[in-house]
Design a protein around this nucleic acid. Structure first.
Lengths: 184, 184
DNA sequence: TAGTCCATGTAAGATGTTACATGATTCA
DNA sequence: TGAATCATGTAACATCTTACATGGACTA
């Protein structure tokens, strides 16, 4: 157990280091400069996370240049761990409490797994959304009368977010279907 | 400093206890039974959180009935702390990294602040979204060519989520505008 | 040579997770 | 009486936040 002990931040770091080897400082700059991810760029988060990844054998760092800069890159174990995380089955809990993490899992898929696994992921995501949404809508329909305006609107916001994700899976699946080739 | 030391869970508990006094067990059941919030229903999260709220003087609990059940309710300090949290200014950071927390802040507004503050919140949320989105779209436009399909789609997912929130603020603002009365 | 980046780190504290523990009450 | 449910709790562990610390390199 506890094989999945990396945090979202840890996996985001693995994904970025898979793209290209970088230093902790590079990663911090990436988080603060690009609007892509909402992770902290604080040294107190990044550097300890990198050390943990290194201790677990997922990345390896070596000093470089004059400034005591340390460049990290993935090890084979890190790559297989990252793929394991990406391709593990999508649970209802993932959809209910962690949609952002699901999108993060998908964000780096092109570089690590094949078109087949991308599509498998998207369809599984879509399936879970289709199973979860009816219950949500039903709850809304039966309770909206007794809810104050702000509560009702907040619930609506949540439902619309799931519906947005559902439409997104449809577009994404079409994108991959129309793509030629693929594999890995 | 550190006046805002409550977590999202803490504030969610305050909001629910404002609705009606409950026990920790009731709150756990609420989290596991309703699809409204994605908080943990684990005792290891709820009970320590309740004790912290009590220590800080935001809630007060008293034993009830045979089963050693403890019913919590908000103190005046708890109510004012909750309102303070809800009405504090919306920052760009809130929008970038914590949209869920913003919706949570709004979810209980009807019971704690007036229509005026609800509208102020929604317009402020809308303003921040309108300021943030153009940069996101610009980043997407200039970088889409160099991004792998999965990365591009993940970014699109993020942008669409913000657009969904923006549309939601419009609907919500209209809802409150068309409401008669209000205040408190 | 003073200030500003670069680059990494640590320490204290809060919170959350998982797993385990405890005892009362209800019901078959 | 045994099982399920009610109801609360603790302990170990991992992670993140904030704030502070350090020192090299570049540049005005």
């Amino acid at each position: 157990m506890k094989t999945d002990s990396n945090s979202n931040l840890g996996f985001a770091l693995l994904g970025l280091l898979w793209q290209s080897p970088r230093s902790g400082y590079d990663l911090r700059k990436f988080f603060s400069a690009t609007p892509m991810m909402s992770f902290s760029d604080s040294p107190g988060a990044i550097y300890p996370a990198l050390r943990r990844l290194e201790q677990r054998g997922f990345i390896r760092g070596q000093a470089e240049g004059a400034r005591r800069r340390k460049i990290f890159q993935l090890t084979p174990r890190g790559r297989s761990e990252f793929r394991r995380w990406q391709t593990q089955p999508i649970t209802r809990q993932d959809v209910v409490r962690n949609c952002d993490a699901l999108v993060l899992r998908f964000a780096f898929m092109d570089q690590s797994v094949g078109k087949r696994d991308c599509l498998r992921f998207l369809k599984s995501f879509q399936r879970e959304l289709l199973q979860y949404l009816p219950g949500l809508r039903e709850y809304f329909r039966t309770n909206r009368r007794h809810m104050p305006a702000s509560g009702r609107l907040a619930l609506q916001n949540g439902i619309e977010a799931y519906e947005g994700n559902l439409r997104w899976t449809e577009v994404a699946i079409r994108t991959y279907r129309n793509q030629k080739g693929g594999s890995s």
